[in-house]
């Protein structure tokens, strides 16, 4: 049904070209995930593709494995803190970026883009040195800081795109009707960018949840995030428990992507820069 509606809307040839391309790219990107998912179904205790049978026992094992459970809890906890801290930083920064004057704008833009061009490892190393000297190296704080930094540029980009779609006259109208600047922002602008805030939150969550490089440096022994624990497990074992856990993560990731699609966050990321200043 949806397909027929679509073909009527745009020229057939163009649509076909797009779908073949999209299909190829999707297959290419999803292939490793498919391999992992199938490998987790293998009944025998080794990673194999294609699987030689069908069994869900490794999923049970994965969820029951104590070290996976504590890591999963830790990862989720850190990701949630990262979302809150990240939004507290990125929302005001994005407002400054869209509403600010030339100089403020350039400074903030540069500052928030820095994590994008510095290697994560360097960032992690720097944080490690700094936090050890402050005797905070083994705390959750380091992980949170590092993850926030990594997710920052994307979250800002999404929020800036969202804010750029809001007519600045809306706040002016609110002001003429008697709303102070802060009230105008809270009652008029903020509700308009809620989808963008949602998208930014999902991005911050995923970037934290999936992060390896920062976590590798800043995880304390016995307090490792899930990706690191999986990696360590794989060094000693080769059974499909890891694959099963990974499959669970993939499912969570796809769910997040669906949420993003709903909120329009992926589109804002792709076409965001072009849509600023309509």
């Amino acid at each position: 049904m949806a397909a027929t509606v679509d073909t009527r809307r745009r020229p057939r040839r163009q649509r076909q070209k797009v779908s073949v391309f999209t299909l190829m790219m999707t297959i290419l990107l999803l292939l490793p995930l498919v391999v992992v998912a199938f490998a987790s179904l293998n009944p025998d205790p080794y990673l194999l593709f294609p699987p030689e049978g069908f069994s869900l026992r490794w999923f049970g094992d994965a969820l029951a494995y104590p070290s996976f459970r504590t890591s999963l809890t830790l990862s989720l906890r850190i990701a949630l803190i990262v979302v809150v801290v990240g939004l507290l930083i990125t929302v005001p920064a994005a407002v400054a970026l869209t509403r600010g004057t030339g100089r403020v704008r350039r400074t903030i833009q540069l500052a928030t883009a820095t994590p994008l061009v510095t290697p994560d490892i360097l960032l992690a190393l720097g944080l490690l040195i700094m936090l050890s000297q402050l005797a905070l190296a083994n705390s959750v704080l380091g992980l949170v800081l590092g993850h926030v930094l990594v997710g920052l540029p994307i979250a800002i980009q999404v929020l800036v795109a969202g804010l750029a779609g809001v007519d600045p006259n809306l706040e002016h109208a609110a002001a003429t009707l008697g709303a102070s600047k802060i009230r105008a922002f809270l009652t008029v602008t903020l509700p308009s960018i809620l989808p963008a805030i949602g998208s930014a939150a999902v991005f911050l969550f995923i970037f934290s949840f999936d992060n390896v490089s920062i976590s590798l440096f800043l995880s304390a022994p016995g307090q490792t995030t899930l990706p690191i624990t999986l990696f360590q497990y794989l060094e000693n074992n080769a059974d499909p428990t890891v694959a099963a856990m990974s499959t669970i993560l993939v499912v969570v990731g796809i769910a997040a992507a669906l949420v993003l699609g709903r909120l329009g966050g992926l589109g804002q990321l792709a076409g965001g820069a072009g849509r600023r200043r309509r």
Binding site: D167, L170, H172, A173, A174, T176, L177, V188, P191, S192
Partner: peptide, 13 residues
């Protein structure tokens, strides 16, 4: 005061 804008500036939400 009150102001009416060319773009109307109604609050969309």
């Amino acid at each position: 005061i009150s102001m009416v804008f060319q773009t109307w500036a109604l609050f969309p939400t």
